[in-house]
Nucleic acid binder design. Structure first.
Length: 180
DNA sequence: TTGGTGATTGTTTAT
DNA sequence: ATAAACAATCACCAA
């Protein structure tokens, strides 16, 4: 065993300082921390900034909400669904989560493409320093094509799914008759 | 009227 | 590598 996979890194998992509800309200903090972004000049909002893909848990959560709502039409509290979903999520077996993870992984790939385009744009803006009006004449057509085309993500895609997960997701959209 | 909060976990990103 | 923030959702309360 020479190498051992231990790797230096702290083998100890002492990470997890924030165990509790986490920052509690990141929202509030986020607002306040604008300084980090506007430390430069103006907090430029990134309209192209791709939102983070839903994690496996969120994918499951969406569906779970549906079920939960059906069972508890009265309960509409987000916290109620979150707790129930989290509890069940941990109770779910890895195989059950597999399909959710698969979808999440896929979304992650697309996110990589968006990031590529976004990243490129950021660089473009950075070039000027101030994005601004005169640059606007450049116009931004959706420039996300070649680069995003089949760009293999450098991130190693571990395909350790020995289990054949049916990837055929048949979405039957049965019209739910909205009873009038 | 508007929007922020609450709660879950996972992923993403920046330092 | 680690810490922190953020991803969706929906009803309610405060200013």
């Amino acid at each position: 065993m020479k190498g051992g996979k231990g790797k230096g890194a702290t083998s100890k998992e002492a990470l997890k300082p924030v165990d509790d509800r986490k920052v509690g309200k990141r929202k509030a903090a986020a607002k306040v921390d604008k300084s980090s972004a506007l430390k430069a000049k103006k907090a430029k909002k990134d309209p192209n900034k791709p939102k983070r893909p839903a994690s496996a848990f969120f994918v499951f959560l969406e569906e779970f909400r549906k079920t939960f709502k059906k069972d508890n039409p009265h309960v509409t509290a987000v916290s109620a669904v979150g707790k129930a979903a989290g509890e069940k999520w941990k109770s779910m077996s890895p195989d059950e989560k597999a399909p959710y993870e698969a979808k999440a992984a896929k979304g992650k790939v697309e996110y990589g493409k968006l990031m590529n385009a976004y990243n490129k744009k950021q660089e473009d803006i950075a070039d000027d320093g101030d994005e601004e009006s005169d640059k606007s004449k450049s116009e931004v057509h959706d420039e996300e094509e070649d680069e995003a085309n089949g760009e293999k993500k450098h991130q190693s895609v571990e395909e350790e799914e020995e289990e054949e997960v049916e990837e055929e997701e048949e979405e039957e959209e049965d019209d739910e008759d909205e009873d009038d």
